[in-house]
């Protein structure tokens, strides 16, 4: 794009603003990331590996993967349902529904954990019933999954709703006039049109599911090797002044974040024509 004369700022101003912006980003975004890696490898790669291959660390990694493997598919299924319902039909109360879907974003993670304790904890509403049947939710894996589902609930729907709304209903109507049924229309018309948006949503949902700390912290009970996810394990090691161990586990999570961002950027870059085409109407 040619630089426009009237809206192009003088070069010194541009450079000053760029410098200030980049400086701010360097201090607040780049340095923390660098610090994680520097601390993780402060005592060499060997120490890093030892910290990661410990039994507790391995258990934490395993649990994190399990939780994400349950929470993400659930929220993907929900996200597809919700965005289809919201984008393809008109019904009263639609905007209220959309606000409610966004609700977990505005709830503190600690409260997202607390609600499950209030429902299923020993003093909770359903606590006595659970105890009578010898079921454990809070301070056990089901509680961790529930808290994670709550926190990551909106990600997929959030990504898909605006995309599907923008694409309208014409193509679905065309498919139906041509004789396609509902499921067929969804699989061969709607889904291909939103696949990159869906992938975005899944990536973000997964990153958050694996990295969630506050909500999980409240319901987990911090039982080493049993109910410790990776972020909780970071906290425990850190509080025990095992900095290399804490940062080693943290470096894995940071890697996850970087890979997520890279994948997101890559997607946007490779499929920008397609994304632009699917958003144009």
């Amino acid at each position: 794009m040619a630089r426009r004369i009237a809206t192009g700022d003088p070069t010194p101003v541009r450079w000053l603003l760029i410098t200030v912006a980049l400086g701010f980003l360097a201090v607040f975004l780049v340095l923390p990331l660098v610090a994680v890696l520097a601390e993780a490898f402060a005592k060499g790669v060997g120490a890093w590996w030892v910290a990661l291959s410990g039994e507790d660390s391995r258990a934490a990694i395993r649990l994190t993967l399990i939780v994400a493997a349950i929470a993400v598919p659930l929220n993907v299924a929900f996200g597809l349902c919700a965005s289809w319902a919201v984008a393809k039909y008109d019904f009263p109360g639609k905007s209220l529904l959309v606000s409610l879907i966004d609700l977990p974003f505005s709830v503190s993670p600690v409260i997202s954990g607390l609600v499950w304790v209030l429902l299923f904890g020993a003093q909770g509403l359903l606590g006595p019933w659970l105890q009578a049947h010898d079921l454990k939710v809070v301070f056990a894996i089901p509680g961790i999954v529930l808290a994670t589902v709550f926190v990551t609930f909106p990600f997929v729907a959030r990504e898909l709703i605006p995309l599907m709304e923008e694409q309208g209903r014409d193509e679905e109507e065309a498919a139906i006039v041509l004789g396609a049924g509902g499921l067929r229309t969804f699989w061969s018309v709607t889904l291909p049109n939103v696949k990159w948006g869906l992938l975005y949503g899944v990536l973000l949902c997964n990153a958050r599911a694996m990295g969630e700390f506050g909500a999980v912290s409240v319901v987990s009970g911090h039982i080493r090797g049993l109910t410790n996810t990776m972020p909780l394990h970071v906290e425990i090691l850190y509080n025990e002044y095992d900095f290399v161990g804490a940062f080693a586990v943290a470096s894995l999570l940071a890697l996850l974040a970087v890979v997520t961002l890279a994948a997101k950027t890559g997607l946007e870059w490779w499929h920008r024509d397609e994304i632009a085409a699917s958003r144009r109407h």
Binding site: G211, P231, F247, A254, L256, L261
Partner: peptide, 21 residues
């Protein structure tokens, strides 16, 4: 792309990194 880092970086990781800084 980096601007999204705080969205993707687990909060506990951010917490100990910021403290280290």
């Amino acid at each position: 792309a980096m601007v999204d880092l705080p969205f993707a970086l687990p909060t506990a990781v951010a917490g100990i990194a910021l403290t280290a800084l």
